[in-house]
């Protein structure tokens, strides 16, 4: 982590913060893109509250996915759940070919419009990368380490919490990062089914043919995604560093 890159991060974060709290300061940049006196800055709601509800949707869903996926991952790697392990692997492999948008589209007929189908789609799709990485992380813990833990008289519960999960943590975190990034995108599309989020700005731009809206919506979403990805990557690196190098599972 070099100085210029962390400077760039801070600058990007500051820019994003200023933009969503006081977008009017930037009106001059978007005016050339508008036609027929259309507004240059999104005026159908506060960017800040849209950003916040976008984040709440994404992180709420991911949190739930993480809890469920890690529990499932732990279950199928215990002796009692081991017979489900091969099938689980095939299912996550198959499941991830499902386009996240299709999950969203199919959720609408089941639960109707609004935040619900988006949350369901994010939750369901978010399960897959986290579950897969939990499996990978837990099954790649060195058998030597486990043998030593057992040999010293650690109970299965202690082995799980003090050895297996900490060692699998970087890989699990990589799964969480993948889920969050995918979910940020899916949540944006969620605006087409009336979920509150930053997609609204882009959709509004598309409907009113206002390129300025499309661009600012796109930029805010993009910047948010890149910053969150970067932040999660940093956490992951920190978790991996003391284990002797960055696992680098992406």
């Amino acid at each position: 982590m070099t100085r210029p890159s962390s400077l760039l991060r801070v600058a990007a974060l500051a820019l994003l913060a200023v933009f969503v709290t006081a977008p009017h300061l930037f009106a001059f940049a978007f005016e050339p893109l508008t036609e027929n006196e259309a507004p240059a800055i999104y005026n159908q709601g506060s960017l800040l509250s849209l950003t916040l509800s976008h984040l709440v949707t994404v992180f709420g869903a991911t949190l739930a996915s993480t809890a469920v996926a890690v529990l499932l991952g732990v279950f199928v790697t215990r002796p009692s759940g081991l017979e489900f392990l091969p099938l689980s692997r095939s299912l996550v492999h198959i499941g991830q070919t499902f386009p996240p948008i299709a999950v969203l589209a199919i959720a609408v007929p089941l639960v109707g419009f609004g935040a619900k189908p988006t949350l369901i789609a994010l939750f369901l799709y978010g399960l897959l990368p986290i579950f897969e990485n939990t499996l990978t992380g837990l099954t790649q813990v060195s058998p030597l380490t486990l043998e030593a833990a057992k040999g010293m008289g650690m109970s299965p519960r202690r082995r799980l919490f003090e050895v297996e999960l900490p060692l699998a943590l970087p890989v699990i975190l990589a799964g969480v990062r993948l889920s969050v990034v995918i979910n940020l995108g899916t949540a944006t599309i969620g605006s087409t089914v009336a979920a509150k989020g930053l997609g609204e700005v882009i959709i509004a731009g598309l409907q009113s043919n206002n390129t300025a809206f499309i661009l600012q919506g796109g930029l805010v979403v993009a910047l948010l995604a890149v910053l969150i990805h970067d932040g999660l990557m940093t956490v992951e690196r920190a978790a991996a560093r003391k284990l002797g190098g960055f696992a680098g599972v992406s």
């Binding site: 380490t145 486990l146 030593a148 050895v163 900490p166 060692l167």
Partner: peptide, 10 residues
């Protein structure tokens, strides 16, 4: 004590 020691890497 085992070959490879099985030290806890974390």
């Amino acid at each position: 004590v085992i070959q490879g020691y099985g030290l806890f890497p974390h």
